[in-house]
Nucleic acid binder design. Sequence first.
DNA 1: AAATAGTACTTGGCCATACATAGTACTTTA
DNA 2: TAAAGTACTATGTATGGCCAAGTACTATTT
Lengths: 113, 113
Amino acid sequence: MNLENTQVQMRKGILEYCILHIISRGEVYASDMIDELTAARMIVVEGTLYPLLTRLKNSGLVEYKWVESKSGPPRKYYKLTEPGQSFLQGLTETWNELIHSTRQITEKSTTNV
Amino acid sequence: MNLENTQVQMRKGILEYCILHIISRGEVYASDMIDELTAARMIVVEGTLYPLLTRLKNSGLVEYKWVESKSGPPRKYYKLTEPGQSFLQGLTETWNELIHSTRQITEKSTTNV
DNA sequence: AAATAGTACTTGGCCATACATAGTACTTTA
DNA sequence: TAAAGTACTATGTATGGCCAAGTACTATTT
């Protein structure tokens, strides 16, 4: 039970939310997402992102099209589907509620007891 | 891949943080914690809480003493150890950074693209 | 043209946590 | 003594993040 491990655990589910949000803003491919996540200090590696995108695709929340690249192999450009947009809305609520709940607990002062 | 499941996933790791925080405010036993977590709508059931407390104990982050009860079997009253306090500090930082990162991503407006 | 490097995506296996469920042990009450 | 309630324990399942190795295509170097 160490900090590093807990950081991994805390990321669970939240990553999905962040990625759906990134996709919701316009068509992007995997490396774009990694760049943006890294810029926000939400480090993500390929082995995490690609399986997640596959899950989102299989659930019908996102779809993609192949686009040729001038500097390497073709890329999958993702965008949200209709169900994906509703799902993202739901996630936003869930996330906000979770923050609220956590705040309610962690902002209780020590002197209350 | 449904909302309910994602809520469960998002809770991962955060629960540990919340519980350490509750314990940090004074000696409590399991039912106290469940009450407070429920009040904050961070629903937790026995099957989640007890194993978590055992993990925290085995990691040396919390310790407990048995206290007789007037209405049932004896209770384990928990409190933080020294390492537990440092760990909680670390978790607080981790959580705040995670919120910051998420905000940075989700508050980017759709019109940027 | 062949070898090397770089980019994009894939796959299989591991680990930790939340949860459902069933069960143990003790105390109080009827 | 039996039933109900409280506190804690134990087992098995599902999921997601990550490591690591691998495939496939393109561009560059020799």
